[in-house]
Simulated scan of single mutants.
Amino acid sequence: MTYCVGMRLNAGLVFLSDSRTNAGVDHIGTFRKMSVFETPGERMMVLMTAGNLSISQSVRELLSEYEDASGHTIWNAPNMYEAARILGETVKRVHERDAQSLSGFGIDFNVSMIFGGQIQGERCRLFQIYAAGNFIEAHDENTYFQIGEAKYGKPIIDRVVNPETSLDDAAKCALISMDSTLRSNISVGLPLDLLVYETGSLQVTRFTTIDEKNTYFQMIRDRWGQQLKHVFEGIEAPAWDPGSEAGAHPILNSDKPGCKPVMVKRKPDPDA
């Protein structure tokens, strides 16, 4: 399993992926999930993958050379929508080639992808591509996509990120989201790939690979845990009954009629 998150902001794009592919008792595998397709000054596109690794690799390799019926490739697509469509067609080609044989071995055609970037002449765009080759695009109402083990890192992004968020704050939020996931799921692991793209750059300018020795990520892990505990301790314990001891604290208990647990009555013992 894996965890990847991509964010589309007014200022640009943020991509973060882990590298775990297997987490058995005696075998931990790693493989980088992020790939960059770049023609400096003309286009910069990022692909992140989750799911079956052999399918992901096949899609990535075919994508680099695939040409559709109109002569469009990932390298000359006129806009990001067309680039996403070409990626979707590539997924369908791999499905046509491999899905039936995989099914014969009891293996599902399981792949999901985040794809985003900028082509000269248009804004930054971000897409999520599914195993059927169909896709959706991020808009202001939903500025990010997650694939893989998404649930642990979702709450912090929902509370913090919006289109006006700065790239640095979004990167910090993505790393906190990843830390939450790492702490809760062994199937996600270091090292991480982080790419931060500023609108109009049309090339990679800020990228890093983060391992357990990275001092900023170590700080994130320590400070976030400490701050969560501090906030938790600053919230009052529940006051169950109204009264002077409760003061101005909100009351947890409800005295409304019918506010009782569901009681299961013990049946009489016929032998008693």
Rank of each mutant, 00 (worst) to 15 (best):
F109M: 04
R159G: 08
G117V: 03
E65D: 13
Q218P: 04
T205K: 15
N214G: 00
S54P: 00
R159M: 14
M219I: 04
F135H: 05
D222W: 05
N134Q: 08
G148Y: 01
K256S: 13
E89L: 12
P268Q: 00
G41K: 11
G106A: 11
R223Y: 10
D211M: 09
W240C: 05
M219D: 06
Q226K: 13
P268R: 03
F105C: 09
W75Y: 09
M178T: 05
Q100W: 12
H27D: 12
N10Q: 13
S254H: 12
G71Y: 12
F115N: 00
S54L: 11
N79V: 10
S184W: 07
R85H: 09
S101D: 14
G133A: 04
G133R: 01
L47H: 03
P163C: 03
G258A: 12
T21M: 04
D140E: 15
P78H: 10
E236H: 15
R20Y: 02
E137F: 06
V25A: 13
A69F: 10
A132T: 12
L9A: 03
R60V: 06
R93T: 08
I210T: 03
G234P: 00
P261H: 09
M48A: 06
A132N: 15
L252E: 08
K260P: 00
I176K: 02
V196Q: 02
M113S: 05
D26Y: 14
K213V: 04
V264H: 10
N76L: 11
Y81P: 00
K260D: 03
P238A: 02
N79K: 09
H230W: 07
F31S: 13
S35C: 08
D98T: 10
I114L: 09
K213P: 00
N214V: 08
E122K: 13
E212H: 11
T73I: 10
E212M: 07
D168V: 12
H230A: 15
D98K: 11
D168A: 14
S70F: 10
A174R: 00
A131D: 13
N52I: 04
I235R: 09
V91F: 03
S166K: 08
Q57P: 05
R123T: 14
P238K: 07
G234R: 10
M113C: 08
S17F: 02
C259Q: 14
F37D: 00
K92S: 06
E42Y: 12
G247Y: 12
I210C: 03
T209C: 09
L53S: 08
P40F: 13
N142M: 14
R8L: 14
Y197D: 01
S244I: 14
G24K: 11
A131S: 15
